[in-house]
């Protein structure tokens, strides 16, 4: 199956959205007797910002973990770039070009900002151990080349002034930004963001929203994000999946989702009489 040939649409603000790059088909994920995700299907199209929302415990993070290969669903298929993806280890998924950030920051605390972001370039840096031991020559050339690419991202996210600072010394908001930089450094074809704005104040949220939009605009990166702040989600995303108790209860543009009765019920509650 290949929907890549499908229509390319242009959004109101002039961004191009291409064909389907990732499709989840009837995913069911169980932990023992608990069904975390139940028969969910949705797709992510190239160049779009796709949000996954839902109340606490709806299975959003589990869904992201399925995409990044951390959990393996009992049923269902993951299709990536027109091919069915066999069960993979997380690092193999990363090598395919899917990068992510975490709900609780998962930076390497003992390393500097620069080293953290450079680690994101794993996919691009291939010199062997022997060449690295000698350093002069291939390893150094590769290091410099990738450093230049990383510096662009550091510039883009406005973290130049802290590039040599150990990550453990940074405040929360900056750490989130460094984590985004690390994911971006991989030049991913899909970027997964797990609550990029959790625990931020309004200004930091505005900054982060701006960065997400800029990333999508500038690099054309496909973004799938989980977020609780409804205002942010509705403003940022092109399409939204709504989950509740592991089931999909809505899927569509922010406006469609907003007027969906099931979604309103899940968020506001319904009278049981």
């Amino acid at each position: 199956m290949n929907d890549m040939s499908a229509e390319t649409t242009v959004t109101a603000d002039g961004r191009k959205i291409g064909g389907v790059v990732m499709e989840m088909k009837n995913i069911t994920l169980r932990f023992g007797g608990v069904v975390a995700i139940k028969d969910i299907s949705f797709d992510i199209r190239e160049g779009e910002i796709r949000a996954i929302i839902g109340p606490n415990g709806a299975g959003k993070s589990s869904m992201l973990n399925v995409i990044s290969g951390f959990y393996h669903p009992q049923e269902g298929e993951v299709w990536y770039k027109g091919q069915k993806r066999p069960p993979m280890k997380p690092y193999q998924v990363a090598q395919q070009g899917i990068a992510r950030t975490f709900q609780n920051i998962a930076l390497f605390e003992g390393m500097s900002v620069l080293d953290n972001v450079m680690t994101g370039r794993i996919r691009q840096m291939k010199t062997g151990l022997l060449a690295q031991a000698l350093w002069k020559g291939r390893a150094e050339a590769e290091e410099v080349e990738n450093r230049a690419a990383v510096e662009k991202i550091i510039d883009f996210l406005e973290i130049q002034h802290i590039r040599k600072t150990p990550v453990s010394r940074l405040p929360y908001g900056l750490k989130k930004r460094v984590e985004l930089a690390r994911a971006l450094a991989a030049e991913p074809s899909i970027l997964l963001l797990d609550e990029p704005m959790a625990g931020m104040n309004v200004e930091e949220k505005e900054d982060m929203s701006r960065f997400i939009l800029d990333v999508n605009d500038e690099f054309g990166t496909t973004i799938a994000l989980i977020e609780h702040d409804m205002g942010v989600v509705m403003d940022l995303s092109d399409r939204v999946v709504v989950m509740d108790y592991g089931k999909k209860i809505g899927d569509g543009t922010p406006d469609e989702v907003r007027s969906n009765q099931a979604v309103i019920d899940a968020y506001l509650g319904v009278a049981h009489d």
């Binding site: 690092y91 992510r100 930076l107 390393m111 794993i122 996919r123």
Partner: peptide, 26 residues
């Protein structure tokens, strides 16, 4: 040389947070 390059970064990534290291491709 090894510790300032990619090999060292991979090692330190594993040391600091092995799950995150695996998810970014180590």
């Amino acid at each position: 040389n090894l510790t300032r390059g990619m090999a060292g970064r991979k090692w330190m990534a594993i040391r600091d947070m092995d799950i995150a290291a695996e998810i970014i491709g180590v």
